[in-house]
Amino acid sequence: MSVQLSVDGRRVDVNVDPRTTLLDLLRERLDVIAPKKGCDHGQCGSCTVLLDGRRHLTCLALAVAQDGAEIVTAEGLAGGPDGEHDLHAMQRAFLEHDGYQCGYCTPGQICSAVGMLAELADGHPSHVSPDLTAAPKATDEEIRERMSGNLCRCGAYVGILAAIRQSAQASA
């Protein structure tokens, strides 16, 4: 079946078997390897991208069901050719704060963090928000709760939290 997508600013028109997940389409057919296959069951978050601006798991999405979607991976978050100055502010923050060890979960962490801060800016509450009707704040507790869908087996959570905290303060 035919699927048209925008992937990191590139127009893509491909024929896929309906069984193909969005993750497999990106990695195996389009050579977009920033999203990673960790658990492939929606439990680890390493396949996270921004889909129409929202953080989204690609392992639990059929490619045929995403026709017309605009996808931005961690690679597409960077502004241009490789180089430190072209990195997204969240990517620079992860570098500054050692928000990774092996790096496998990192592209998913970064996409998730960017999407999460947009949700915060839109006033979305979370499980730990004390008042459902008040504007939420980017406290450490809120960041931890909102990032619970991204696991890091190296345990780099201290650096991940520091990186996201810095980005939240910079964008506040």
Binding site: G42, G45, T48, R54, R55, H56, L57, L60, A61, S112, G115, M116, E119, P125, S126, H127, S129, L132, T133, R146, M147, S148, G149, N150
Partner: peptide, 22 residues
């Protein structure tokens, strides 16, 4: 959030940020 907070709380207690978007 104002009229049925239990429903909002139940949703927020489930899954992850990504999965709730989907």
């Amino acid at each position: 959030r104002a009229g049925w907070p239990a429903v909002s709380r139940a949703l927020l207690a489930g899954a992850s940020g990504q999965i709730r978007n989907q």
